[in-house]
Design a protein around this nucleic acid. Structure first.
Lengths: 167, 167
DNA sequence: GAATGGTATGTTATAGAATAACTTTCAACA
DNA sequence: TGTTGAAAGTTATTCTATAACATACCATTC
């Protein structure tokens, strides 16, 4: 009844390619400059953590990580930074898991959908045109003006499904 | 800066047609009987509250309402009832607002989408075939097995948009 | 370069959402 | 009627999020 699964094969848990992070971070800097909004050290630190992680982080996990890096943050700092980053489209919020994820391509505006695996915790971002368009036509039909679309599929990813069936 | 809007024209706030509630409740009873699961007084009370309300209720609002009707509930009671009702497909959870909504047509299995107006708080349930199918094809393409689809559009409803523009 | 006003941050406290862990009750059925 | 499994009661706690107010920082104008 405990731990029916193999440990997830993931060398050093939860980090992503530095080069990619640096590139996205640079994009974020540029975007904020263009919009005349300030990517302050606090906001930047939160964004860095999210970009470096390969899975979503909760506000309080971010809070803990920040403590390790010189800040002495309280919850409002983190939530303010998260709000800002969301407004700027630099991160996403996963409503179903109260967690936040760095956006991989903040340059173009987009509406993503997320696949959340309840077994391994992995989250995959996708951007399907047909999904976006079917939602748009529904909105149009009802005269609804959408600010943010939350589309999250909760279930089991292909890897876990395969592992489960072969176990 | 305070209350730029007209009061919402809604006679006695937040209640729905009794006949409709009774009908859905009867359906729920039947469904549970068929499945040999128990719609206990607690579960039934929570369902009744959700069906009677024309908008989603949070767990703690439900808790307060239950106190007024003879129960002496603690949070776990409410969450257990909500879990049960969700498992049985009798209610929906709105992840983006931490609130729950009675399902209008629990008889057939379905995947709903929700339009949440941030101005008036109104929530509309819809069930668009094209949305469901585009999500299904995305899942299929990735080998993902979805247990629950969370689709919530956050924005402004037609009524509020109209009211805003004419103000 | 001081005054000003807006934006961001710090700080403390608390509200609100959800669950852990254990006990007791209850209903079904052998 | 005794056993068993599910549901409910109980207490405490953890996690998520924001309110409210004070302070600091930065840009602009006089």
């Amino acid at each position: 009844m405990t731990e029916p699964h193999d440990p997830i094969p993931d060398g050093d848990q939860g980090t992503k390619c530095d080069a990619s992070c640096a590139r996205i971070l640079a994009q974020a800097e540029r975007i904020c400059a263009e919009r005349s909004v300030r990517l302050t050290p606090q906001r930047r630190a939160v964004l860095e953590l999210l970009l470096a992680s390969d899975r979503p982080l909760t506000a309080y996990v971010i809070l803990d990580q920040l403590r390790k890096s010189g800040f002495k943050p309280a919850p409002p700092m983190v939530y303010r930074a998260l709000d800002f980053l969301m407004q700027q489209g630099l991160i996403h919020k996963l409503e179903s898991m109260h967690a936040y994820l760095g956006c991989e391509h903040p340059n173009h505006p987009h509406e993503s959908q997320f696949l959340v695996c309840s077994e391994c915790g992995d989250v995959r971002e996708m951007e399907r045109r047909d999904v976006v368009e079917s939602l748009r036509s529904a909105e149009a039909a009802l005269g609804f003006k959408t600010d943010r679309a939350v589309v999250e599929l909760l279930g089991t990813c292909a890897q876990c499904a395969h592992r489960d069936s072969s176990a």
